[in-house]
Amino acid sequence: MRIVVLVKQVADPLLPVSDLAISPGGTKVLGPANVPPVVNGYDEQALEAALRIRDTGRGECEIIALSAGSGFAIDVLQRSLTEADDLVLIEDDSLDTPDSSLISRALAAAIGRLGAVDLVLCGRQASDWDHGQVPLSLAELLGWPCATLARQVTVDDDIVTVERVLSDRYQVMRCELPAVVTVTSELGELRYPTMQARLQARTRRPRRLSLSDLHPVGNHDGGSVLMGLSLQQETRDCTLIDGKDGAEAGRRLASVLIESGFVAGSQGAT
């Protein structure tokens, strides 16, 4: 079987606002130049889901990581090659956009070019635009079913079964292959490749597809235009509560909460 894992390069989502800047054109949130970008966290988990399928599956399983974007940090993306068989990149300035329809059209065309793909695994959302649209848009373009929010993905013959994490329940959903599945963080721990495997991955070249060769089809835009970005610098003045040790600080915190009326009828109670 052949699995495509969609991986997106993003600025490190754990950077504090104070380290972020808006690009001159006002279209991008930038991290400091000395902090490398990362692969979107959920996408690493999508790769892990693919590896678990390969571990348990019968027969051949080829895993291809696919990314669209611009300004690729090759050594960051190449890390997926420690486990994946191939890394395919579509690099074009027009793909650095919040317009998920442009991105999914490029990805759909690339998947068409790869041919005979059984399963596309993606993250539930990318940490830059935080909207979770690309996988559903891609599935629509491919005409494949899409099951989202998986903490477990298993493949049996030509059926994929996912266990979805919803806000109050776990739901088991099934689709026929080919299908698109998105993965959520409850999937659990990633495996950490050995240094040797990492070094080896660095010697392997990604394969490049050019956007103009791919002839993406479909509508020209997703009906939305980014007009600007601003940073959200909200902070509060924090009153530190201290004491000679943690226990004293804890008791003082209790007093503050009581005085603020958070313990009903506590003043002078037992």
């Binding site: 902070t235 924090c238 530190l240 201290d242 040790d245 943690g246 804890g250 008791r251 915190l253 209790a254």
Partner: peptide, 23 residues
Amino acid sequence: FRMASHGVVGDWQDVLPALLDGL
């Protein structure tokens, strides 16, 4: 601590039992 109105710098293992007692 930049977004909190009140803060305790400390190990919860020390702070929380005393907080609970105090409450």
